[in-house]
């Protein structure tokens, strides 16, 4: 039984998540490798406003210019933090970028056929507000309580050591060396992040593989559907689902659109919480953030997003009133 069905099914799911996510991690690590070698320390920080509050507000919008999904953003911010970007700004960007970007906006727009602009716009705004709130709170928290001790050590070492100014007048040999260094750093980041990614997707694959013993076990989705009528239970269940499914933010809206036994508030909670916190991200975040901070962040996001989705539910529900049927419009045209 185990070898005949469970292991092939697990392997099938494991590989499907791997081949979906790995290209995005690679993209992020190649960007991070080039940032490492070609971007001078503090350059990004200098681009942001000196006022830290404004810097956080702007960091939440960086995804519009640098659109990356949640897998790709982790290696990028890891490198940016090492290059001097304040952790509050980096985490704001990390949380917002998978949602506040044109690709996610368009996919959400096309998934919700009846109320496309309302859902895509609400998701973007909801995600931005949550990321900025987290960033503003983190302005008051010490770096040592946010980042891994190893990263803090590297930052302190960098501060006390030399400033890396890229030498733009370097020779051809030096330029080649720098390319090798950039790709070497990219691969090192890829392996670093990949190791944690494997742990995350192993758990996701186990959760999604039918258990080898009790075939009468009820699939997760059936439990989740039973909470649709509960005011607090519905967003909690959908956030739990997004956490376990670990979907890519560029296409999770197509799943949310099918969860139509739920109202719009819980579905938005699903669409905002998932790209900020899921099983694989839990492990990816641990490449830069301290474990204690990740747990606090996860709990804070869960409570904050869940509460906001419940409070704003009357607004979200109003979207569907007085809407003309898109299908009939298409036919008339």
């Amino acid at each position: 039984m185990f070898l005949d069905t469970w292991l092939p099914d697990f392997s099938f799911l494991f590989l499907s998540i791997l081949v979906e996510g790995a290209p995005f991690i690679l993209l992020g690590t190649i960007i991070s490798g080039f940032i490492d070698v070609y971007l001078p320390s503090g350059a990004i920080d200098r681009l942001l406003p000196r006022n830290r509050g404004l810097a956080v507000l702007m960091s939440g919008l960086l995804g519009i210019i640098f659109p990356v999904c949640e897998c790709a953003v982790v290696p990028v911010i890891r490198r940016l933090v090492k290059k001097g970007l304040p952790p509050a700004c980096a985490i704001t960007y990390m949380l917002a970028a998978p949602i506040v970007n044109p690709v996610t906006f368009l996919s959400t727009y096309s998934a919700f056929k009846k109320i496309p602009l309302e859902m895509a716009g609400s998701r973007l705004l909801f995600g931005y507000v949550i990321a900025v709130i987290v960033g503003l709170i983190l302005l008051r928290v010490g770096v040592g309580r946010i980042l891994k001790p190893r990263i803090v050590g590297e930052l302190r070492e960098a501060e006390s050591s030399h400033d890396h100014h890229p030498d733009h007048g370097s020779t051809l040999l030096e330029k080649k060396n720098r390319l090798i260094m950039a790709l070497r750093a990219a691969m090192r980041d890829f392996v670093d992040v990949g190791i944690y990614f494997v742990i995350g997707i192993t758990i996701v694959a186990i959760v999604n593989t039918p258990p080898p013993v009790d075939q009468q076990t009820i699939p997760l989705r059936d439990y989740i559907d039973g909470t649709a009528e509960s005011i607090w239970g519905a967003p909690a269940a959908l956030m739990g689902l997004s956490f376990l499914l670990s979907l890519c933010s560029t296409s999770d809206a197509f799943i949310a659109a099918t969860l139509d036994t739920f109202s719009n508030g819980p579905r938005l909670a699903f669409l905002v919480f998932g790209p900020m916190m899921d099983v694989k991200l839990l492990f990816l975040y641990s490449t830069i953030l301290s474990r204690k901070f990740i747990l606090i962040l996860a709990a804070g996001l869960f409570i904050g997003i869940g509460t906001l989705s419940v409070l704003l539910e009357p607004i979200f529900e109003g979207f569907e009133r007085n809407k003309a049927p898109p299908f009939s419009q298409g036919i008339q045209e």
């Binding site: 099914d9 697990f10 392997s11 590989l15 039918p210």
Partner: peptide
Amino acid sequence: CTGFTKHEYSKEALR
């Protein structure tokens, strides 16, 4: 996983 996968769901998983 590349060795064990059958590139599709088993009947149990389909159910």
